[in-house]
Design a protein around this nucleic acid. Structure first.
Length: 332
DNA sequence: TACAGGATGTT
DNA sequence: AACATCCTGTA
């Protein structure tokens, strides 16, 4: 299949991988009632993609936008996979359209959050893409990225949603970059987490430092393959089996101590993990022993468009002053 | 240093 | 509304 018609009025050639952002923009410019059969299918794929739902169960139902809108909610949810989510999304699109919001076409493209937030976003006329991310979504993204989980943040019990912040300084700094708040600290981030207790999104796990519990988890949560219990070779192979190609190449870069940019939430950042061995002279009452301490050191870099990065100093983290050339930029 | 939560400002 | 900032106080 080399191309598909996605709109009733216009013919657009699209790749089999999905729609480009400009193609999506065109789709959302057209009222849902005027979508073609392929337009409806493209919309379904897009939404499932945005909500991390399994797109493989989707198939072209060969109904156009008009027929789609004529379905009752019950009928809709019965016939269409993930019907509850798609229904909510469709209602969202229709409502925004009729409320005469000039920015509406953008919203169909940035729905990376949970369903309840869609309605609220509909009423936020000046919400930019960089602003649409909540802290809990950001943390969930980090927990699903092998570059940040488990080194910066990890599950203590994924089934219970219990996680721990391993490197508060780095995570807080990344969140600050994401929100364009360079002064962000764990003091501030922690206050936001405490607000989440009140809202019922998180719960503090009492007695455990830096440990919180999600009270709700998204379906199809990606599980980062364990990095601790296997060799580097297995690690990379495991990642290759379980993750899309772009991610396994990123994991490989980490294993090889290469600098590699983060793509989740913070595309302008890079992390470098390095295992350093230091001799540690520890004193017992009787003997003095030297012990090799293997420690994972994390360096954080900021990317420029040329791929040259400078290290960010997260005091008292170690600093490298020389600029580093990025070997590979993200494919995704 | 982590943590609880009040007060107030910002977007 | 969802933080960000600042702060008082506790452990």
């Amino acid at each position: 299949m080399s191309g598909t018609t996605i709109l009733t009025e216009e013919v657009e050639v699209i790749s089999t991988d999905g729609l480009s952002s400009s193609e999506l923009a065109k789709l959302f410019l057209i009222p849902p009632s005027r979508w073609s059969e392929d337009g409806v299918f493209a919309w379904m794929q897009h939404v499932c993609d945005q909500f991390d739902l399994d797109t493989s169960t989707l198939k072209n139902l060969h109904i156009n936008g008009k027929e789609l809108q004529m379905l009752s909610q019950t009928e809709f949810e019965k016939r269409i996979p993930f019907g509850n989510i798609l229904w909510a999304h469709l209602q969202f699109l229709i409502t925004c359209r009729t409320s005469d919001n000039p920015e509406l076409t953008k919203y169909g493209m940035v729905n990376k959050a949970v369903i309840p937030s869609i309605k609220r976003r509909c009423n936020e006329p000046h919400n930019s893409a960089g602003n649409c991310y909540y802290l809990y979504e950001f943390l969930l993204a980090l927990l699903q990225d092998p570059l940040t989980c488990p080194h910066l943040i990890r599950w203590l019990d994924i089934k219970l949603g219990v996680f721990k912040l391993m490197k508060t300084k780095v995570v807080s700094w990344m969140w600050g970059q994401h929100k364009k708040k360079p002064e962000m600290s764990y003091e501030t981030l922690g206050r936001s987490l405490r607000y989440y207790s009140q809202k019922g999104i998180l719960r503090k796990v009492i007695g455990y430092h830096l440990t919180y519990q999600f009270r709700f988890l998204p379906k199809n949560l990606k599980v980062v393959p364990s990095l601790e219990k296997c060799s580097e070779e297995q690690e990379i192979q495991g990642a290759r089996d379980e993750w899309p190609p772009c991610l396994s190449s990123r994991l490989k870069a980490v294993a090889l101590n290469e600098v590699f940019p983060l793509s989740v939430g913070t595309p302008n950042l890079a992390l470098l993990y390095k295992t350093v061995t230091t001799a540690n002279a520890s004193q017992n009452t009787r003997h003095e022993t030297t012990q090799d301490i293997r420690q994972k050191v994390i360096h954080v870099f900021k990317l420029s468009p040329q791929g040259v990065v400078s290290e960010v100093q997260l005091s008292p983290e170690p600093q490298i002053s020389r600029p580093v050339k990025i070997l590979r930029l993200s494919n995704d």
